[in-house]
Computed example of a mutant assay.
Amino acid sequence: MAKRALRVRVEVVGSPEGPVESRPGRIMIVPPHVTFDDFGLAVDRALGRWDLAQLRLYWTSGDGGSDPSRFSYKDRVAAKLKPGGVFGYRFGQDGWEHECTVEAYDDPVEAFGRETHTAHAITGWGAVPDQAGNTAPPSTVDEGGHVPLWPDLARLRRLDDGEVRRAAFAGDLPTLVRAVTGSNLDYALQFVGDALLKARRASGGAEGATASESDAEVARLLAAIAGRLHERGWSGDEYLAQDIEAELSGAETELRPLPVDIPELTQIMSSGGDFRSEGRLNLDTGEINEFQPFGDRFDAYDDEDAEGEEEDAAESWTNVAWIESGSSDGWNDMSSFAELQHDPNIADRLARAIEGRGAFRRFRDAVDQLDLTDRWHEFSGDRELGRARQFLAEYGVRPI
């Protein structure tokens, strides 16, 4: 039988609290079509992890280890490594570190007992720490009588978006890394991914060991966020992930860079009701003109603009898609937010709030009463950013 798979030794070498001296581990059989993200998920399951919605990143060890973008989540393990190769795998922002050594080629039937197209553990050793540091079953239940889920979320602090914006604008990589690390990014992948990209580009001329270390850490965070964006799959996520991967690899993307004011674009696209507005985007310069659609839509332009309008190429201007309060996008955002709540009681309350007329008002009241307003704004803001990025991609451009 042909030896078509890799046999990989995986050892847990680091935890959020520091090094793991006992180095518990697993031997994994890895068929040829398994990607790094498939591999990481199989390792996590083999190690008994129960909250799998975490950032993952993979990098080389030894020579070349300074290139954190060497392995994309979608690269095939067998295409990048051969026996003797060593690579690192980190699970979660807090830093569960693994040393992975490709021991040999192996036959999956002989090693695993049957043909398989996914990675599996075939043996293991050692006491594996719980991913959240739990040493006993939970002794409390919530108000509905349920065992609280994902207790490790309490260890993650809320993202300080102001600090992230300031650090990104200044190209201050060390501050940005501190602001992002240990924060809950579930609802902020668009915002944080864009901020990391801008900061890395703005700090292109930074020198020194500290700057180099910070740049490497930002690159690792970006690689992990790209994987999470692909997995999450919201509108615009695929395009931001591609932009990140192009930045890390130095490759070109199919989308043309354009300096666009994303906050202004999202404001127009999410406006509605009495404050509904429309606008147009100049695909040559990135300029946005906003106007109210109920009057003369060109009232906002002066005579000089009007005289020059006929000279604009037809494909250079396009009306910005607008979204009103009762649009399907807005309602779908509320519905998705409700479904993503870990507490079934909260999820049920929010789902009932958006039934029938007055859904938007009832939903706002509910998130306020449940102390979820900040999380809702973070969630809906990231959805709006993604839709703006999707809108631009449909015209062949990406924001810079």
Rank of each mutant, 00 (worst) to 15 (best):
A119K: 04
D343L: 01
R220W: 07
F87T: 09
A170E: 14
G113K: 05
R9G: 11
N134D: 15
W322P: 15
V109W: 00
G272K: 03
K3C: 13
D172Q: 15
S22K: 07
R178I: 08
Y89T: 13
G113C: 05
T210L: 11
E163D: 01
T140F: 06
G272I: 03
Y395M: 07
D374A: 08
A314Y: 08
A321Q: 11
F169G: 06
L240T: 09
V128N: 04
A53C: 01
V77F: 03
G14L: 05
D333I: 15
V180S: 13
Q242A: 13
D160H: 06
L370Y: 06
T181L: 12
L189Q: 05
D329Y: 09
S22V: 03
H230R: 15
E315D: 12
S336G: 15
N184R: 10
G144W: 08
I244S: 06
L392G: 00
E99K: 15
G133W: 10
A46V: 05
D333P: 10
R387K: 14
F91I: 07
D75E: 02
A313V: 05
P293A: 11
E278P: 00
A223V: 02
A209M: 02
A53E: 04
S328M: 14
G358T: 10
A132F: 03
L173K: 06
D186I: 05
T318A: 12
S22Q: 05
D302Q: 12
M28V: 11
G396V: 14
R398M: 15
G64E: 10
W317G: 11
G381E: 00
G48W: 03
H117E: 04
V86Q: 00
G233W: 01
R9T: 10
W59P: 01
D284P: 00
R90V: 14
R90E: 12
R256G: 02
G40D: 00
R157P: 01
D67C: 02
N345E: 15
D37Y: 14
R201S: 15
A300Q: 08
G205Q: 06
G25T: 06
D67K: 08
W59S: 09
A202N: 14
A167R: 11
L81I: 07
G193I: 00
